[in-house]
Amino acid sequence: MKKSLIALAVLAASGAAMAQSSVTLYGVADVGIAHEDNGSATTTRMDAGNLNGNRWGLKGSEDLGGGLKAIFTLEAGFSLDTGAQADAASFFNRQSFVGVSSNFGTVKLGRQMNPVYATASTWDSFGDALAGDSSRLFSYNGSRTNNMVSYNYSANGFYGELQYGLGEVAGNNSITGDNSAGRTAAMFVGYKTGPFDVVLTHQNIHNNPYTTATKMTLLGGNYNFGVVKLFAAYAQEKTLGVGAKDQKDAHIGLTAPVGTAGTVELSYLNKKDDLVSNANAHQVAIGYVHNLSKRTALYTSYAQLTNDANASYKTAVYAADGKTQIGGWGKDDKLFNIGVRHSF
């Protein structure tokens, strides 16, 4: 009798401990057909990750008591059309971090999303996806940062995150000062209430070798009127010294529901180059997403990007080294795609 009671107590304790931790396997499978004409060549191909990037991942948490939790995420990207790993040099190339969360915020360490990419769905009507993807003209400066320490907090509609990415350049790795090559300091802060959501982001990247820094600031948001949701954003990117750059990006767009399962997306993007004459560009786009279920959707989109004489966004032709541009000035790029996405 005593042994039975002890066994039941052990099982109960084991069950309670298991209930305090959880691990979730999740992912996205997305592929479609794309037709693109960039003025130099016309291509019909199978493209993966049009609506959402293909991935599989593991995420979990453990309740440590007193409102404290341990958390982790390991997320790997892949190309659904070929089955290949998205990044041959990095298996968990999308996100890989561990951290702790409490009522006072969340601290994470590892590879994480940078502020422009992390907040794209707030200010981009295409949500960084399909042919209208704002990154076709906006300067994201990558999507994720390695070796990042972040602190995130949200309350009463306010939300924000501070980020610091260690440069880890040998012999040039101080946390502060001019010799902090490769390091990234970034943040975003926002406010969401009812139909209104606005966010401000800033990113400061010390290039490697550190002869200059790239700074980007973006203000954007959306307002949901019910029958239509309006989006807008304005960004400025500056690099001084070697590789000088001074560009301004603007976006305006909308989404509108079609019945209970569909959404129409429209956008206009504009890039203005203040250092190079006749090097501006703009893009118009339209898309449609139809949800067959909570996890499966069909989609299609079309975008036309137009360059000034000295710009070549999405139209450049490069030599075998992949770096030297040998053609593509002043051409337009037209992109159409159609496909299916399933999440699990």
Rank of each mutant, 00 (worst) to 15 (best):
K2G: 01
K2I: 12
K3T: 12
K3M: 08
A9I: 02
V10N: 10
A16T: 01
Q20C: 07
Q20A: 15
T24W: 05
A29S: 13
I33T: 08
N38P: 07
S40W: 05
S40Y: 08
T42M: 05
R45Y: 12
D47I: 05
N50E: 09
N54Y: 01
G57Q: 01
K59S: 13
G60F: 01
L64V: 13
G66D: 10
G67E: 01
F72K: 03
L74K: 00
L74D: 11
G77K: 01
F78G: 08
D81F: 03
A84V: 02
A84T: 06
D87Y: 07
A89K: 06
F91K: 04
N93K: 01
S101G: 08
S101R: 09
R111N: 01
N114Q: 13
A118P: 00
A131Y: 05
A131W: 03
G132T: 13
G132R: 02
S135A: 11
R136M: 08
F138H: 03
Y140H: 10
N141I: 12
S143Y: 07
T145D: 15
N152K: 09
N152E: 11
G157S: 03
G160I: 13
E168F: 05
N172M: 02
S174K: 04
T176P: 00
A181S: 15
G182P: 00
G182M: 06
T184D: 15
M187R: 07
F188A: 04
K192S: 03
T193H: 07
L200M: 11
T201F: 06
N204M: 06
K215I: 00
M216I: 15
T217H: 06
L218Q: 14
G220R: 06
G221M: 03
N222S: 14
N222P: 07
N222E: 09
G226S: 08
G226V: 14
V227N: 13
A233T: 13
A233W: 02
T239C: 10
V242T: 15
K248G: 02
D249Y: 15
A250S: 11
A250M: 15
A256H: 10
A256I: 07
A261K: 15
G262D: 08
V264K: 01
L269M: 08
N270A: 10
D273C: 11
L275D: 13
V276H: 00
A281N: 10
I286H: 06
H290F: 13
Y299V: 05
Y299A: 01
Y302N: 06
Q304M: 14
Q304E: 14
D308C: 04
A309E: 14
S312C: 02
Y313M: 07
V317C: 03
I326N: 09
G327K: 10
G328E: 04
G328I: 10
K331Y: 08
D333H: 11
K334N: 15
K334I: 10
F336H: 07
V340F: 12
